[in-house]
Structures are given as structure tokens and as C-alpha cells.
Amino acid sequence: MGGPKRVTLNDVAAASGVSRATVSFVLNDDPRQTISAATRGRVREAAKELGYVPHGIARALREGTSRVVVLNLDRELEGNYSHSYVQGLDDELAAHDHVLLVRYGHSAAKATQQVLDAIVPRAVIRFGAAYLTGHALDDVGAGWNDGLAAHAALQIQYLADAGHRRIALALPDSDSPLIDVRRNFVRESAEKIGLEPLLPLVVPLSRPQGRAAVEAFLEAHGEVTAVAAFDDRVALSTLAALRDLGVEVPGRIAVIGFDDTEYGSLVTPALTTVRIDAEAHGRRAARAALGLDDAGLPSTPARVIVRESA
């Protein structure tokens, strides 16, 4: 027995009382056609009720590419920022009849090319590409306006406003491509507000190794009163090490995270962190991939989520 009959443009045309050509113009957002808002609404409602799905292969042959946008996302960059970015990217692409395909982790060049050859995507986006450049200081990716530079500055400024003058920058024990970029932004942020350069502290994920690293650091740098962490994972590892060492937080050492993962509020003391809503960044990336203007897409400024640790 065959599956359910596929809904066609003819079905949508019959249900909405217009021609097949009109349905095609409406569903493809053809800018050359003048069709009333009422008719457009009727066609889209009929397509939605019938469950019409465009024939991707036919459309790809006609347009030269599929209506798929590929996002390459390294797993180590996952967090609240990436989740909100993907949400915004997906929603904006869907609003323009495109589909998002997210590829996680590092992929070999051959495997990547096989995917691209199979689906002929409209665009390929590398998550964090603007962050990785480290020099586009005025854009919404790496910028001082609403990007990694601004977010790093917010974290350091919060500690400075609390009276901390000697601060450590806790980094992951990994080769994240963002480490060098982040360190550069932190250095510039500290210079702008008159702080001495932040002292690097590598905190391994292993609890015993993390404790040993933090203990050695504090013995060498007893003047440090606060830790700005690369992300919440590193901040939580630092908190665990300080707890094991019997160091009072925030009395002796204040700790602030970055990217507000769901675990920060569950520890004791609860983690103060920087929350970044990147939905607008994702929407802008979608419009850039489609060659559309990104005017009218407001950003939500990053903010410090104040809890107990700093």
C-alpha cells in the first residue's frame, strides 16, 4: 500500500480559489508579482492547513541551490550563546522558507564536501567566525558594540566596579580557537579601565588537577582577589577547586562565569555570570546568508546575572 498522497500546488490552488501560478508566486515570494495581502494570506493558510511541502529537488534544480543553510558548530563552543544563536538563525531562515542543517564537531574535509555536494546548500556558516577573526571590532560578532569584545569587557568591568584590582583569567585546558581572541579582548578591556593585565590561570576539568592548578596559582599570586572565567564550565571547575582548598567565595576570591549555562544556579555558592542573548546575531547571520538587509533587528545587550559567587 502506498503512503499518503503528496499535497501539490494544484491542491493549494483549489483550496484557496486561485490559479496554480498565483500559488507559486506567493509561496516563492516572487517580488515581480503584485498580489494582494488578502490573497497571499489565503494561499499561505491553505498551504498550512493542507500540509504542503515544497518539492526541494525541483526547487534546487530551478534555483541552482537547495533551500538549506549549513551551520558548522564545534561542540566545545556550545553554551547559551550558541543555543540562542541557533534559535535565531533557524527562525529567520524558516521565515524565508529555508531550512537549517547543523553539523556538530570537527569534520574531515572529504566528509564536509560530500554533504555539500549532496545538498548544494544556499550557504555555509561557521559558528563564531566573526569571533575568530578578532579584528572586526565594530561588527555584531567580535565587536565592542555587541560582540565578544563588549561581552568580555562587561565581565571585567563588573569585577572592577566591585573593587577588584588584581584579577585572574581562568582558561580551559584545551585548544579552543577562541582563547587567544578572548585574551586579546580582555587585555584591551583591562587597559581601558586602568587595570593591570589579568593573570592567566589554566584550570583542567579533572577535579584533582584543577585543585592542584588553583592551589599553585594562589601560592604564587596571593594578591589576586577575583577570577574571570572563560566560560561557566571553567568557572564551575574553579569553584570546585576553591571549595576543596577551603577558600572562601566570594570573601577571599570572587568568581564570575561567562555564558550562563543552566548549571550555574545549582551550585553553592551560585555562580555570577554573563548572559548573552545571541538570537539577533543568528537572525543577522541568516539574512546575510540570504543576501537580505538586516535592518530592524534589535539586539538584546549582554548582562551580568548577579548571584552569590561575585
Rank of each mutant, 00 (worst) to 15 (best):
residue 3 G to D: 13
residue 3 G to Y: 06
residue 5 K to C: 01
residue 12 V to S: 02
residue 13 A to W: 08
residue 22 T to D: 04
residue 24 S to I: 12
residue 29 D to H: 12
residue 31 P to W: 11
residue 43 V to S: 03
residue 45 E to C: 01
residue 52 Y to D: 10
residue 58 A to T: 15
residue 59 R to C: 03
residue 65 T to L: 01
residue 73 L to E: 12
residue 73 L to H: 11
residue 74 D to H: 09
residue 76 E to A: 08
residue 78 E to R: 03
residue 79 G to E: 08
residue 79 G to Y: 05
residue 88 G to D: 09
residue 89 L to P: 04
residue 91 D to Y: 02
residue 95 A to E: 13
residue 95 A to C: 04
residue 96 H to W: 11
residue 98 H to W: 06
residue 98 H to Q: 04
residue 106 H to A: 14
residue 107 S to T: 15
residue 111 A to Q: 14
residue 118 A to T: 14
residue 129 A to Q: 14
residue 133 T to S: 10
residue 134 G to E: 02
residue 134 G to I: 13
residue 135 H to S: 11
residue 135 H to T: 15
residue 136 A to E: 13
residue 136 A to W: 11
residue 138 D to E: 14
residue 142 A to S: 14
residue 144 W to L: 11
residue 144 W to R: 15
residue 146 D to M: 03
residue 147 G to E: 09
residue 148 L to E: 12
residue 149 A to L: 08
residue 158 Y to E: 13
residue 164 H to T: 03
residue 169 L to H: 15
residue 179 I to W: 02
residue 180 D to M: 03
residue 182 R to E: 12
residue 194 G to V: 06
residue 200 P to H: 05
residue 200 P to F: 07
residue 202 V to R: 09
residue 203 V to G: 01
residue 204 P to D: 04
residue 207 R to D: 12
residue 208 P to D: 10
residue 210 G to A: 07
residue 212 A to H: 10
residue 215 E to N: 13
residue 216 A to Y: 03
residue 221 H to P: 04
residue 223 E to K: 02
residue 231 D to F: 05
residue 237 S to C: 10
residue 252 R to A: 15
residue 254 A to P: 05
residue 254 A to D: 06
residue 255 V to K: 04
residue 262 E to V: 14
residue 265 S to D: 12
residue 269 P to F: 12
residue 270 A to D: 08
residue 277 D to R: 06
residue 279 E to R: 15
residue 282 G to D: 10
residue 282 G to W: 08
residue 286 A to E: 08
residue 292 L to K: 02
residue 293 D to C: 04
residue 296 G to L: 11
residue 299 S to D: 15
residue 305 I to N: 00
residue 305 I to S: 00
